[in-house]
């Protein structure tokens, strides 16, 4: 059986049989994989703890007919411990990994998504920024990498230079008065500045933003995500916002 080795972020796990788990992970080179980790629910398991969600690991697997099997796992970044000690961070990190799971396909390399998700989990675990802001920044950038980059300055339809007041999820971001479809939202200009900062990684502006703008911004991001994924991300409902 061919063996392979890759860096991976564990996205989620499912119980399998008496003591096994199916591990869904996003690897750096192979994209999303689903592998069987045998015996990891037993107390004697040597690597069960490394295959929990949010962990970044160096995985060695062998290819099977349907599912691959994990033979070795070594911890690269143990984010799980720091994240689950802070409930707000846990809810944000769960939304990150669920979105990543939804945006990636098995067998399709997604190195940029791997870098984004591992960076987002590291930022949440480090606690340097508000976990809700890191989540929104991740969602915007992951959608951009997937091909749905929102526009927060120029008109998303005609490209007219902004800033514009109206925001329309279906149109792809801010829209000028001429292109504005009926029912477009009119968020505060500061909210659009915050969202643009989150997309570009300007943390000075993001960290200095008001809670009101953060709440409004996260609502727009959630609506944007739901529109493009065509189905809600279940974890988002449970995210605790500061």
């Amino acid at each position: 059986m061919p063996l392979y080795r890759d860096e991976a972020v564990v996205l989620r796990t499912h119980k399998l049989g008496e003591a096994d788990r199916i591990i869904t992970a996003l690897t750096r080179g192979r994209g999303k994989i689903r592998t069987v980790a045998k015996g990891v629910r037993r107390t004697s398991s040597r690597f069960g703890a490394r295959l929990e969600p949010f962990m970044v690991v160096d995985l060695q697997c062998y290819e099977g007919r349907n599912l691959d099997t994990v033979t070795q796992a070594e911890t690269l970044a143990p984010h799980g411990d720091a994240i689950c000690r802070d409930y707000t961070a846990y809810t944000a990190a769960t939304a990150v990994v669920e979105t990543c799971d939804r945006l990636t396909e098995e067998g399709e390399p997604a190195t940029q998504q791997f870098l984004l998700v591992s960076g987002a989990l590291a930022a949440i675990a480090a606690g340097e920024h508000d976990a809700g802001l890191v989540l929104d920044a991740y969602l915007l950038r992951a959608l951009s990498v997937a091909g749905w980059a929102p526009s927060f300055l120029d008109c998303a339809k005609c490209g007219a230079p902004g800033p514009h007041r109206a925001f329309n999820v279906a149109a792809g971001g801010t829209v000028c008065p001429i292109c504005r479809p009926p029912g477009s939202a009119a968020p505060a200009p500061e909210t659009l500045v915050l969202l643009a900062a989150l997309l570009s990684g300007d943390w000075v502006i993001a960290d200095g933003s008001d809670p009101i703008q953060r709440r409004e911004g996260s609502g727009l991001v959630a609506a944007f995500l739901q529109w493009h994924l065509e189905r809600g991300v279940r974890s988002l409902r449970h995210v605790e916002r500061a």
């Binding site: 929990e52 969600p53 689950c84 846990y90």
Partner: peptide, 14 residues
């Protein structure tokens, strides 16, 4: 003693 169990414990403690 897994991620969801630990997070539940954190929530309960709080």
């Amino acid at each position: 003693p897994n991620i969801s169990g630990e997070a539940t414990a954190t929530y309960l403690t709080r």
